[in-house]
Write a protein that binds this DNA or RNA. Structure first.
Lengths: 151, 151
DNA sequence: TTGACAAATAGGAATGGTTCTTATATGGTT
DNA sequence: AACCATATAAGAACCATTCCTATTTGTCAA
């Protein structure tokens, strides 16, 4: 008896998305790419390229760091992974200590400040407040700025 | 007649905060530090350490990059500047494409995902929608995680 | 199934940003 | 005015990322 036969796990679905999106974008399905994607969906800690490399080298001992790094960037380009805070740029500083919010252009990485009362008044959810001490909150919008939209 | 005599500009106030906070934290007021802070409050683009260095070298030609970098880090430690998105870490990846939100620990840099309906339903403000195309929005809370709180 | 070709990979070199080290200089205090 | 802890300049070291090139490998069409 094969109980699991028809159960589509989340991860199974994610792998299916991976195959489809790769094909749709004319990308070859290589063992390295598959392994990197698998490693990523197993991870629960928003790993860096180096983190993924360190884990995957146990399974594919001669994989190169460059492949891991390049592949993760490819994943974000075809929309099967997102890059989270820490955009791999130099640290950027802001002397404005008032609560404000950010729009970030995904193309040119410009960060634009904006103010918004509704956003300022957001409450930290109860369950988060129990575990953590939140000292600041801000809304981050990401998309295309007017310059990059034109192109 | 000195019209401006009593007008405290924002920047004047900011400089006052700079002096006070520096003293309170036992930091010396050096020409370099003052100049770096002035440069920062004039900037409107969330500059990187290198950006600030390139600007300030015109005024203090023999200042070193290291001083600029170290000083900006000091500013964020004593709370007169914030570091914005791009925490100077490696890029970090997330295979979860659903809308979710982030809590970031300011000490250990851990990013914790959480879900929240109210946050999901936030509207992009009208004036932002006119200028930009927002493709994602998320709330970022920053503070201390349970581990770092204990210490 | 095989052959051809475009795409992907490994490995190492190069780059760019950040941090460390150390000798010298200086702000703040006595 | 003199002292000392702190800050600075300069360059080396470090780390993450990207580039380069020769080799390998999916994929597709015959």
């Amino acid at each position: 008896m094969v109980y699991n036969m028809d159960i589509k796990t989340d991860k199974g679905e994610m792998m299916a998305v991976f195959f489809r999106r790769s094909r749709d974008n004319g990308l070859k399905i290589t063992p390295q790419r598959s392994a990197i994607y698998q490693e990523l969906i197993q991870a629960k800690d928003h790993p860096s390229a180096d983190d993924v490399y360190k884990r995957i080298i146990k399974k594919i001992p001669n994989i190169s760091f460059d492949t891991v790094n390049r592949t993760l960037l490819t994943f974000s380009k075809i929309g099967i992974a997102n890059i989270v805070e820490g955009y791999g740029q130099a640290k950027r500083y802001d002397p404005d200590l008032e609560t404000h919010h950010h729009f970030r252009c995904m193309k040119c990485n410009t960060i634009i400040d904006f103010h918004n009362k509704e956003y300022d008044n957001l409450k930290v959810p109860e369950d988060m407040r129990k575990q953590f001490t939140a000292m600041s909150k801000k809304v981050v919008l990401e998309g295309l700025c007017s310059k990059c939209k034109r192109r």
